[in-house]
């Protein structure tokens, strides 16, 4: 310790902190300031086209939870969770299955792996336009094959019962390769010793999968679950291009509804309460998932 002044350790800490200040300023400006602004707008009657607004207290919150907004909030929650469940199933289950297949038969399969992963690099908006063509009722490739097989044309994007499935087809096409690659990397990092020991005990493929592979993949599964869940809850582009939230609001996911209130109805006040409700919901679910997974995830290597 110096006789007077700051301890060298404290000085080090201050210097370290000083290095983070530029990043902190950016985070405050572009993350926390917009959140604070959003909270402020949720108590106003701001119409996006107007330069001025008035404070209206809890009016927008009441509209969302007890007024006509509740019906659409519930609908968008239902639709978003349905979409999330679909994307999680495709990414986690589909990705795992493909990873197991490609891991078992790895000779000459690198090209196939690349092909499966490649759609991830195609921009969502471009992919959505291609799928619009694939799913077109009259001239789409999918209906062409269905009719060739003796089936009837399906109005994929025009019916409530098939619109969500259509969006999930696009999602699956893009996301399954990502799940596969992440799982494949994780599978290859599992020590071979475990499998050799299991082989000596005469364990079957399924026993090894259940007893070694799946438990050892649990951190990867948790990582994929959380990241896929958050990204799936924020789905927008595919819905915007392919269905515009329709038909009958059957694909009106949360973010699309926020966008619609703000940019179509110009109701920035309503959009902001929806956005805040969404923010809180995501925060709670993610925190709960992390909390619940404690002790259930195996981090051994």
């Amino acid at each position: 310790m110096t006789k007077k002044g700051i301890k060298p350790r404290t000085l080090d800490h201050l210097q370290d902190f000083g290095c983070t200040i530029p990043a902190l300023i950016l985070i405050l400006m572009f993350t926390y300031f917009p959140i604070l602004k959003l909270i402020q707008i949720s108590f106003t009657n701001w119409n996006l086209l107007n330069d001025h607004y008035d404070y209206v207290g809890l009016k927008n919150w009441k509209w969302l939870f007890t007024g006509s907004g509740r019906k659409y909030l519930v609908n968008s929650l239902k639709v978003t969770f349905l979409y999330s469940a679909g994307e999680l199933t495709i990414t986690l289950f589909g990705g795992l299955v493909l990873a197991l297949i490609f891991n078992t038969m790895h000779k000459g399969f690198s090209a196939l792996r690349a092909i499966v992963f490649m759609p991830k690099y195609v921009a969502m908006s471009s992919a959505a336009v291609i799928f619009l063509w694939i799913l077109n009722t009259d001239n789409g490739v999918l209906n062409y094959f269905i009719t060739r097989l003796g089936g009837r044309r399906v109005d994929w994007l025009g019916q409530s019962s098939t619109a969500m499935i259509s969006i999930l087809m696009l999602t699956g096409w893009r996301a399954i390769g990502y799940g596969m690659i992440v799982y494949l990397a994780a599978i290859r990092s599992i020590p071979k010793d475990y499998y050799e020991a299991a082989d000596l005990d005469g364990a079957s493929y399924w026993t090894k999968l259940r007893g070694i592979t799946l438990p050892m993949l649990s951190p990867t599964t948790l990582f994929l679950f959380v990241t896929t869940f958050i990204s799936s809850m924020k789905v927008f582009q595919s819905v915007d291009v392919m269905t515009g939230g329709g038909p009958n609001r059957s694909t009106e996911v949360f973010v699309y509804q926020i966008y619609s209130y703000a940019m179509e109805d110009f109701r920035m006040d309503r959009a902001s309460v929806m956005a805040l409700a969404f923010f809180i919901l995501l925060l709670v679910i993610t925190a709960s998932t992390m909390k619940l997974s404690n002790g259930r995830v195996n981090y051994d290597t």
Partner: peptide, 14 residues
Amino acid sequence: FAVGKDGSSIMRQT
């Protein structure tokens, strides 16, 4: 009742 993003093109083609 033509709906959806391709409702207009379906209508025209029909």
